[in-house]
């Protein structure tokens, strides 16, 4: 109750708040300052405040850029609508929208925006083409190597070719083969699925129990023989199962690493967003 009454009063106070600091020009100045301090949310809100009374292309772009810097991609999509064709930063705003769609994995909308960028002959068309190629690498679609590498210059070409090859020929391991291996030599399927240590220990466990079973049968200890024999059988079967599972996990890892390496590469390239120097 107390807080509500104070809050109500604060708002009445805000009307009395000096117009000196709240004229559009001052708001913009303050927002620019916040932007350069990496205080992007406050900057974006101040830019929005400015835009309620004024129109300014740079401000629209910088507000969208602020949201982008905070990885708030849905806000980028919301606020990029207000940019119109005759603005200087129109192409840039559209490109920010494109990256955001990319990072939200909204590939259908991505295609629409990419087509628009191409249609208007944007100055960032090459950048957009590069991103399009990455969507091809990330989606279940087949295209030629030449098409994928075409927008990239020499410095990037080899990396992109490697990505393409990794997509076309992922080094998967067959769960079936892993199981077959392990059923022939216990643990070998695990070694095949890149789990050397687990393979050795599986071999040892099965081996030791088999030996104990054999030894006890030889000494005519029937019960112990069956007990260890049973355990050996369990570990043998469990290892076959586990080898198939290990191969499946290995494959999931291959997929994950591929996507992850693309993300890392794109982060390094800043998703082909040009450098904007608004602070110097």
């Amino acid at each position: 109750m107390k807080i509500i009454s104070i809050l109500f009063f604060c708002y009445s106070l805000s009307f009395a708040q000096s117009q000196l600091f709240n004229s559009p020009q001052e708001v913009k100045k303050f927002a620019d300052y916040l932007y350069c301090e990496f205080d992007y949310l406050r900057a974006a809100e101040e830019y929005q405040k400015f835009l309620r009374t004024d129109k300014n292309d740079t401000v629209i772009f910088k507000s969208v850029l602020s949201y982008y810097m905070m990885d708030r991609f849905s806000d980028v999509l919301n606020f990029s609508v207000s940019s119109s064709r005759n603005f200087v930063f129109y192409d840039d705003t559209q490109f920010l929208k494109l990256i955001s769609l990319f990072r939200l994995n909204m590939f259908n909308e991505f295609d629409t925006t990419a087509a628009l960028i191409k249609m208007i002959g944007s100055k960032l068309e090459t950048n957009s083409e590069k991103l399009i190629r990455f969507t091809f690498l990330m989606r279940d679609s087949i295209s030629s190597k030449g098409f994928i590498v075409s927008p990239f210059d020499e410095t990037e070409k080899t990396t992109i070719e490697k990505f393409y090859d990794r997509k076309q020929n992922p080094h998967y391991k067959s769960p079936l083969l892993a199981a077959v291996f392990s059923s022939i030599i216990p643990g070998s399927g695990k070694v095949y699925a890149d789990k050397l240590g687990d393979g050795i220990f599986a071999f040892l466990t099965t081996g030791v129990f088999t030996f104990l079973a054999y030894d006890n049968f030889k000494a005519d200890h029937k019960f112990r023989g069956w007990l260890f024999g049973g355990l050996a059988g369990l570990f043998y079967a469990g290892n076959i199962y586990g080898s198939a599972a290990a191969a499946q996990i290995f494959n999931a890892g291959v997929q994950f690493n591929f996507q992850n390496d693309i993300q890392i590469y794109l982060t390094k390239k800043k998703h082909y967003l040009p450098e904007y120097d608004f602070c110097n």
């Binding site: 469990g238 290892n239 586990g242």
Partner: peptide
């Protein structure tokens, strides 16, 4: 059945102290 297989596999992995 599957649970026991998964468990023995886990048990083997539990014994491997490396990596």
């Amino acid at each position: 059945v599957k649970a026991v297989l998964m468990f023995t596999d886990r048990f083997t992995r539990d014994m491997n102290p490396f990596n």
